[in-house]
Design a protein around this nucleic acid. Structure first.
Lengths: 146, 146
DNA sequence: TATAATAATTTTGAAATCGAGATAAATAGA
DNA sequence: TCTATTTATCTCGATTTCAAAATTATTATA
């Protein structure tokens, strides 16, 4: 039998999972209604907001295995939403670069995406959101335990 | 350009996603080191803690499509960790019932699982966990917006 | 400069998931 | 009672993901 601290941590794990899944379910449906899957959207959004990225970095940032990056970048390239650009300094490296078409797509989707997330978060007041952000930030960087 | 409220909600969405993924990454590794994938573990744990469940209910509770339930229950049945039991009242319904072997497995894994989650949550104090639970509870039940 | 170690990407095969349709059983309504 | 609708499970094909191995390029070191 676990002690109180453990029981509380388990409870937190459960509500964290539920909250994440509840929000994500809606977010993903919206993304898919725009012809992208969540991974494709994550890649495009990263390129749109953070500029060209080596494939490797994309994998690191959105937590995707190298083989999966190849797959999703292929898909997006086939759709004309990004292109591969060779790195001039290091011939092992390939950058992904969002295309004009990709930019237009993200520009078209993102405002509504953001608005929906805001509505999905509307059960919290502004200051509760601030609290939640601070608490979740601490949880986001555990690592190095196992 | 989004307003402040939207920006804060987006920020919350990002830290929520990061926290969830950071915790889950470790939890899933531990589960997999015990020969189960996360979905299999979720099904077994549900049966262990909540008793026999119609396949339908399993799908509803762990958010899995009907075809996927058939697949994962097949896997667990093949491993001898659960069995299918016909419902006497309604011949459409099949219950999944954890086996003794399945119970032993969960009993063997769960305490360490709980302990690791507790350690992964150790960046929060006890009262911060309580706060986080209250805030995340509210986020977990949005629904009915889209 | 060779050689070995490291790094980035792609290939391959298997596993997990979904959605749509098929099947079988139960329920509601005429 | 018959028929239509709903419900539960399964089947099937396609998509997405991973992990391990292969390929190619770079860097470190002897």
């Amino acid at each position: 039998m676990e002690n109180d601290s453990t029981a509380k941590s388990l409870k937190l794990f459960i509500v964290l999972s539920r909250a994440y899944k509840a929000i994500n379910e809606h977010v993903n449906k919206f993304i898919q209604s725009n012809g992208l899957n969540p991974t494709e959207f994550a890649v495009l959004e990263l390129l749109y907001h953070k500029g060209d990225q080596p494939l490797q970095q994309i994998g690191a940032k959105i937590l995707l295995a190298s083989g999966s990056i190849t797959y999703v970048v292929d898909k997006l390239e086939q759709k004309g939403l990004l292109k591969r650009v060779a790195c001039p300094n290091d011939r092992r490296v390939i950058f992904a670069q969002i295309s004009d078409e990709g930019k237009n797509l993200i520009q078209g989707i993102f405002p509504e995406h953001a608005k929906r997330i805001d509505e999905l978060m509307s059960s919290l007041t502004d200051s509760e959101k601030t609290e939640a952000i601070e608490l979740l930030k601490k949880l986001g960087l555990p690592a190095g335990k196992f």
